[in-house]
Design a protein around this nucleic acid. Structure first.
Lengths: 237, 237
DNA sequence: TCCTGCATTTTGATGAGTCAAAGTGCGTAG
DNA sequence: CTACGCACTTTGACTCATCAAAATGCAGGA
């Protein structure tokens, strides 16, 4: 594979260009770290599963990343991004999410299919092209799934959101984010009309049934299992 | 490098997915074949130079391509695309040129810089995205340099064009194509206002001086050496 | 014909990324 | 306190694409 024309590591003076594989590991590490919302270490097993490789592969890649100063690695415990690694991961995530929005808004693809497309494109887009896309979309702050787009510079501001599992009942709320990239699930969300922006009310939550009942825009009533409900995040209208 | 999500070789039933390196070799082979406008073999030296690798690398890659049935290889003479290889090469070229036009028309990049960008993107674009771009651009037939965009299906129709070196004199002609991807040259063409679409007249051609004099849109007069003049192609107004 | 020059081919090595399978270490159940 | 199981690490091998440098072969000049 020949050299790739992408983001240099401005902060690591003359580091070798990150390959798309390196970018993918960093991105995944970032996402895992977020999800395990502590500043804890991501175990190799989790990372390997997320990357679709055997554990041994993750171990050796992470050791290489540690040598490049992109992660800190604690044998038999896990890894976590360094300042520099996180910066690069956010760069990749920014490309990914801007591309997703671009594919939906400009090219008219369905939100259920853009994740896979963006996974490829995020490694091929130059800073210049990215800037044009960002401008064309008028500097958006969230992608089609409601995931925040990291800004070109500066930290992301994380507003804590509530899922359908822990939001207030009997109050109109707006769908802000759907945390799942599975096309099948996203298409289901489409069919129910639960896409970001939709206003709904949670009617009831049955702990033992592990289900919630919601009313969408005052019309249809729908039951969701807690697995699905936990993926839908809402904010006050 | 992980698997890539792109054009399968529909015509070669269950062939392995072409890597972006393979795509690049095929594309280059196609371009070299065109340029040496006979159906002759492309020597390894030429191919290696075009690909920016040492000759030995080209030899071994071409042997691999021959094993996949994408080229026919004549040791110590050269290689040429098979039917299947040409089909794939045209696919790649279509992606490349549609992306170039997209970058200029939709994202507003300068035509002098899109070639390099497209070289990266052409390997990351899925059929679906390509179709959307094609539709958005209203099924264009040429890219920003005037190079023909291979159609999704069917052969390219090759209209023979004249360069400033062999066109008629004293007759208004329209610039149709500029065959050079060097940003510096393209920017020069920009400055002179010789971009595709411009109407000009060739005033004189001095064989011994290896130069031609042209008048652009009835105003400015300009002298071009034959190297440059040979890169500008025109068609009757 | 013989020889030389040069393009081409071969050979051996390298780096990235991966897997299979064997080895290791640590928490916890007994 | 010991041992088991499971997560993690190591090892060896493989593929792809590449280079450096040595070997080869052909075309043309003497």
């Amino acid at each position: 594979m020949r050299a790739e024309a992408r983001t240099p590591l401005d902060f690591l003076p003359d580091a070798p260009m990150a390959t798309s594989t390196v970018e993918d590991y960093l991105k995944q590490l970032y996402l895992e770290q977020q999800q395990a919302h502590a500043a804890s270490l991501v175990p190799m097993g989790k990372l390997a599963a997320a990357m679709g490789v055997v554990p041994g592969t993750a171990t050796s890649m992470v050791k290489a990343l540690a040598d490049s100063g992109l992660v800190t690695y604690e044998p038999r415990s896990g890894a976590k991004l360094t300042k520099g690694g996180e910066q690069l991961a956010l760069h990749v995530l920014r490309r990914h999410r801007l591309v997703e929005l671009f594919l939906v808004k400009i090219l008219g693809l369905d939100w259920s299919e853009v994740h896979a497309e963006a996974d490829e494109l995020e490694h091929a887009i130059s800073e210049k092209v990215l800037d044009r896309i960002d401008a064309l979309l008028e500097h958006p702050s969230v992608d089609p799934h409601g995931d925040p787009i990291p800004p070109a510079k500066g930290k992301m501001v994380g507003t804590r959101q509530h899922s359908l599992l822990d939001c207030v009942l009997h109050t109109p709320l707006r769908v802000a984010r759907v945390i799942d990239q599975e096309p099948a699930f996203l298409q289901f969300v489409n069919r129910c009309g639960l896409t970001p922006g939709t206003v709904l009310t949670v009617k009831s939550r049955e702990e033992q049934a592990a289900a919630v009942s919601i009313t969408i825009a005052g019309k249809a009533t729908l039951a969701l299992g807690s697995a699905a409900a936990g993926k839908i995040f809402v904010e006050p209208v």
